[in-house]
Every structure is written in C-alpha cells, then in structure tokens.
Design a protein around this nucleic acid. Structure first.
Lengths: 206, 206
DNA sequence: GCTGTTAAATGTACGTTGTACGCCTACGAG
DNA sequence: CTCGTAGGCGTACAACGTACATTTAACAGC
C-alpha cells in the first residue's frame, strides 16, 4: 500500500564498499554513503538502523560470493588451505574492509558458514573437543592477523621502508630483513605463513 | 626562565591507559585525557602534537617493561615462545590497547626492539633471506590475530555464547565447538595456537 | 621586591561526525 | 478521488579533534 522502496540492500552495501575502496575506512560516513546513493543523509536510516548495521551489510556484501562448501580433496590440510585462500581472494579487491570484518566476525553470516566448513574439515581430520577449539582459533588468529597486516600496508609498502631505514647499529637484523621483505610477494607471504600453521596443525594430530 | 612543565610524558600515557582500561578505546578522547590529568583540553596539546601522538605514547607506556632481551635457552622454539608470552603478559592488564598497538606496530620503539630479538632467535635457528621474512611475518600475524581476538572478547565471552545459540540444523559443528570453547582457558588457547605456529616453524627449518 | 620575557595553560570557536525528531510527499488500496 | 502508510528530507544537537587568540605563572636580571 505505501510507497515502495527505491533501493535494495545490495545497492547500499555496494555503495559503501565503493567509498571504502576509494577513500578508505575513514571515508565511510553516513553522509558520504547517502550522497553516493543520491539520497539525503537521513533517508539512509530508512534502510539501516545505524552505522553498525551498514558496516555489517558491507561485510556480507564483500563475502557474498565466498564459496563456503567443504572442499572434498583427500588431504585435509590442503582443504583448509583452499578455504583460507578463498577468504583472501574474496577480500583481495576490498582489503580496507578487513578491520570491519574482524569486528563483525561473529555476526556476519558468511563468516559463520565459512567457519562451519572449516570445522567440518578439522573434524574429519580427527580434531575434537578442546583440540578442535584450539585448532580453529589458531587458524583464524593467523588469518585475521595476516589479512589485517596486508590491509594495513603491503609487505613491500612504506612501513617496511621505514624499518629498512632504521639505524644499523640498533636494529641490524630488522633493517636487513625489511630490505629483503620487498622481494617477497604478498601471495608468497600469505601462503608461506599459512603453510607454517597447517604444518603445525598436522603435527598436532599425528 | 619560562614556566616549567607540570607533567611528564609518562603521566600522560598512564592517564590515557587508565581511561582505556576503564571506558574502552572509544572513551579515550582528548577531552577525557585532559580531564583525567586535571588540565584544560587544549593544554594537552602542549605535550602531544595530536591524538595520534598520544596513542603512540600509550603504546610505548604499555610495553615499557617488556623484556626484549633474547632468551638464551638451548631450544629456539622455546625462546620464541618466551618472547611471545612476554608480549601477551605485558598486554594482559591492558587488553583494550591491542588495536592501537597493531596500528602503531611500525612506529613503536618497544615493538621494534622486540622484533629485533625475535629475528635474532630466528637467525640463530637457521632462517635467512625470504624464509626469515615469512617466518617472522607468520609469527607476528598469529600474535596480532590472537591478541586481537582476546582483546575483542574472551573465548568464553558473549560472542561465543551467541554462536553456541546458533540453530543446530545450520551450524552443528560451530554450535558444538562454541559450547566446548567455554572450557578452554585463555592461556591454553593462546599457548595452544602458539605451539601450532612454532611446530610449523620447526618443520620449516628441518 | 619589582619587572619583563617566555612558555604553559586556557577559552572560544569551527568543521565534521552520528543520529533524534518532525514535517512533507508519493504511492497504491479502497 | 481520497486517504493511510511509509519513504524521504531538513533541521538540530551533542561530542569529537583541533586551530587560534588570549591569559597566566614562573624565573632572570635589576
């Protein structure tokens, strides 16, 4: 009976993500989002209750294509690797939303579905009870940390350059390592760290 | 000749940390910090250039007692474990500053000193070139992620309870695992995850 | 003890944020 | 055509970081 809505939730999220990609997380304000959609500021509140809800929408949108089905390969560590790389792939084009995702990790449906799948792999590998809790949290801690590090600045970025310029007398190893860091690709860094965790998990079950 | 300063930088940081501990990160505002110190808002700017600098002060203060000397035990994984646990111990009483610490990781002197020590351990264990970069970043990713998870809510906290209340039909494993999670202490969770990473690192060098 | 210099401390003010509240208006059922 | 409902908009407010101009307190030299 009443006036129909002019926008879909998808459009809201897409607009918010566009802002984040362009101007960074700090650029996402209710006013900016409304403007991006061609609405007045307060019209936005017809679609979301508050900023928090908009951010949750962003999280769901970014992971909307995340394949959360359990990989059925024979090697369980390989299956966890695939699951982990899928998350990173989904975020590759929208790295700046990673902090939002971490904050909303327990409310975001896509994350919950992914976690259920990761648990299926761990369970099939023989993890149960407290071991399964520790294994999952360990893997997730690495993923959160690695994705956050990437989102805060590439390994070859300015932060590393600052460390590379540190005085050699006080920080010889850090300086040297920072200089090498530029030669390691982001993919290699992520996969390398992931391999460490997966090997550790494998050692836990045997 | 002029009027002497009435405060030491240490007092600034201590006041800011007190606010964060009491009211959370969002509670730390320039106005609140000034009030905590018995100053007018703008007097604070005689001591720090801006909010960013105050946050850096907070980071240094929280880690002021962090022992960054290289442990000299015979087992290098054990030495990394000690270094990692020292960081967590320093943050135990001030978990809410963890996000600040991650944001300032490359500017905070205490972090740089710690990193240099971690690199010394890795180097002595035989890591070099790209391997050392990957090993360090992997360990740091886990630490950041684990500490951040802890700071955002204990394993036994409300977030886990929400997951424990998920519909069994859609999230059987997640629901079950969340229920078990309450029985795992924060210490066990951190140490367990750390062991995974350290075992993975050990597998990398042999 | 008085004075002059200098930095510490303050007060006021501006632009931006999230959002509460009230009004106007376009739509579709009757 | 009419009217109820909900979409959309404008105004307004408190709190934020901080620029700027002003006031105040402590010491050196007399």
């Amino acid at each position: 009976m009443p006036r129909p809505r002019s926008l879909q939730p998808d459009r809201l999220a897409a607009a918010a993500v566009a802002i984040i990609d362009r101007d960074g997380l700090a650029g996402l304000t209710m006013r900016a989002a409304a403007q991006e959609l061609g609405l007045s500021t307060m019209a936005l509140y017809r679609y979301v209750a508050d900023r928090d809800e908009l951010e949750l929408l962003v999280c769901e949108w970014v992971l909307r294509d995340l394949d959360a089905t359990v990989p059925d390969g024979p090697i369980w560590t390989e299956n966890l690797k695939i699951l982990s790389q899928r998350v990173r792939a989904s975020l590759a084009a929208h790295q700046r939303v990673v902090p939002l995702l971490i904050a909303n990790r327990q409310r975001c449906h896509a994350v919950l579905r992914w976690t259920e799948s990761a648990l299926a792999v761990l369970t099939a590998a023989g993890f149960d009870d407290a071991d399964r809790v520790v294994a999952l949290r360990g893997l997730v801690a690495y993923l959160n940390g690695a994705l956050l590090q990437e989102s805060l600045g590439a390994l070859a970025g300015p932060g590393t350059l600052v460390m590379a310029a540190l005085p050699a007398a006080d920080f010889p190893l850090l300086r040297d390592t920072a200089r090498r860091a530029g030669t390691v690709s982001a993919d290699d860094e992520f996969d390398g760290g992931l391999s460490i965790v997966l090997r550790g998990l494998a050692a836990m079950v045997s």
